[in-house]
Nucleic acid binder design. Structure first.
Lengths: 222, 222
DNA sequence: TAGATTCGCCAACAAGCGTTGACCAACGAC
DNA sequence: GTCGTTGGTCAACGCTTGTTGGCGAATCTA
C-alpha cells in the first residue's frame, strides 16, 4: 500500500526532461534502492526464497530492514523487483535453407547454427550474473517465482523458437524442449553442482548441447 | 542427542530372526513411522524443505510433532530418511555393435535403444511417486538435499553410463549430460509446470529425449 | 498380577521471522 | 530562516518455527 509519493510531482523535475521513459524522478535514495536490490539478488541466489531473510538482505546492504519494506512494500514485492530479467536474446535471422540452418547474431557478427549461438548465450547469462540462479532457486519452491519463469519463457524464449520451427503449431513444444535442456544443464552445473557437470569446459557444453538445441528447434517431428 | 534406547536391547527380539537383513525389530510403532515418512515425502515434494514444517507433516500423519523428533531425531534426520531412494535402474546389457547400439531390459523383455529405455524409465519414476519431486525441490535450496542428489547420481546413474560409453574416461561427463537433460525435463514438466512441457505427451517426450540421451551416452566425442 | 517398556499427547521454550509505527536528521523550496 | 518532504534508525508487535521434557495410557514380559 501507499505509492511513496502520490501528490508530490508538481514542480520542474518530473515531466520536463527526456520523454522516452515516461517517468524518472531520480530520487536521492536510488543508491540505497540499488544496494537493496543487489543484496537481494545475491541472497535469493544463494539461499532461495525462505532462507533469504529481509533482515539478512538489509544487513548486506548496510541499512535497516524497515527500509526494504518502505521501498518494496513486502518480501514478495522485493522479489518481484529483483527478478526483473531481460534475457537479451540475440537478434538473429534465418540464413540457411537446407539441412543445417544458420543464423547471424547481429550483435556479435556471428554466423553459426542457432543451437550453438543459443547455448553460448545462455552460458554467458548464467555466468555473468547470479540473477538466473536466484530465479531458479526461488522458482522451484515459490509459486510467484515459478510464474515469473513461465512469463520469461513465454515472452523471451518462445519468440526465438518461432523463428525456426518448421511448423508454427509446434513452436511452444520446441521452446519447452530447449528450455528443458538449457535449464537442466544450469541446474546440474550451477545449482546442484554435480562435479562432472561443473568440470565440463565451456566448449564441451557448447559442442554437446548445441546440436541438441538445434535439433529441438529445427528437426522434423518424429 | 539420545539414541531412543541405548541400554535396552537385551531380550530375545533383537538378533534372533532371519539373518539376511542384520536387524529388524518390527516395532509396534512402525505404522506411525511409515505415516510420518509418507506425509513428509508429500510435504517436501509440495513445499520444499523450509515450508514443509514438522508441524504440518505431523498433522498430515495424524500425530503429535514431538513424535517426529522422537523417531527421526530432527528435521534433517527426517529428510534423510524420506530421501532414501532406489532408482531401480533397468538391468540392461549391450547388444548392438554398429551405429545404433541396442539394449535389452531384462525386467520388461524390451529390446530398444538405451536412450529410449532410460527416458521411459525416468518418466515412470517421476510419475509413480513424488519422492523425486521432493528430492529436487529440496536439493535446490538445501545443501544436504543437493549432496543426496549427487550420491544418487554417482551411485546409480554413472554405472549405467559406464556400460555404454566408448571411452571409460568420458563416463562421468556423459552421465552428467544425461542427468542434465532428464532433470531439466522433470524440472520444466513436474516442478515449474511450464504448460508447454506439461502438455507434451509421454510419447513425444520419449521420441524427442530418447535420441538425445542415446547420443550423450554413445556418440563419439566432438 | 506386577513391573518395565513403549507409544503418544500436551504445554512450553527460545529464537527468528515479516512487518509496523514512532521518532530524528538531512535536505529542498520559498 | 522556516517548513514540508524525504531518508534513515530503533524498538517493538504478533506469529511461527524446531525442539524439549514431563506425564498418562497402552502394551509387553514375567
Amino acid at each position: 500500500m501507499s505509492d511513496t509519493a502520490q501528490s508530490s510531482r508538481p514542480s520542474g523535475r518530473a515531466g520536463a526532461e527526456a520523454s522516452a521513459p515516461p517517468e524518472k524522478p531520480a530520487r536521492r535514495s536510488d543508491a540505497t534502492r540499488a544496494a537493496i536490490l543487489s543484496a537481494a539478488r545475491e541472497r535469493f541466489a544463494a539461499d532461495g526464497y525462505e532462507r533469504a531473510t529481509i533482515r539478512a538482505i538489509a544487513r548486506d546492504a548496510g541499512i535497516d530492514p524497515s527500509m526494504v519494506m518502505r521501498y518494496y512494500g513486502n518480501k514478495e514485492g522485493l522479489f518481484a523487483a529483483a527478478a526483473e530479467i531481460d534475457l537479451g536474446m540475440p537478434d538473429v535471422i534465418w540464413l540457411g535453407e537446407g539441412k543445417r540452418p544458420l543464423t547471424v547474431d547481429y550483435v556479435h557478427g556471428d554466423v553459426r547454427p542457432v543451437g550453438v549461438i543459443l547455448v553460448e548465450h545462455f552460458l554467458d547469462l548464467w555466468e555473468d550474473s547470479e540473477i538466473l540462479t536466484a530465479l531458479l532457486r526461488v522458482g522451484v519452491t515459490n509459486t510467484s517465482g515459478a510464474e515469473r519463469m513461465q512469463e520469461i519463457f513465454k515472452e523471451q524464449l518462445v519468440p526465438v523458437a518461432a523463428q525456426y520451427a518448421p511448423d508454427p503449431e509446434s513452436v511452444p513444444r520446441r521452446a519447452a524442449l530447449v528450455a528443458s535442456q538449457v535449464l537442466g544443464m544450469a541446474l546440474a552445473r550451477y545449482v546442484l553442482r554435480f562435479p562432472a557437470a561443473v568440470e565440463l569446459s565451456r566448449e564441451e557444453v557448447i559442442d554437446w548441447l548445441g546440436p541438441t538445441v538445434h535439433r529441438y528447434l529445427t528437426a522434423a517431428e518424429a
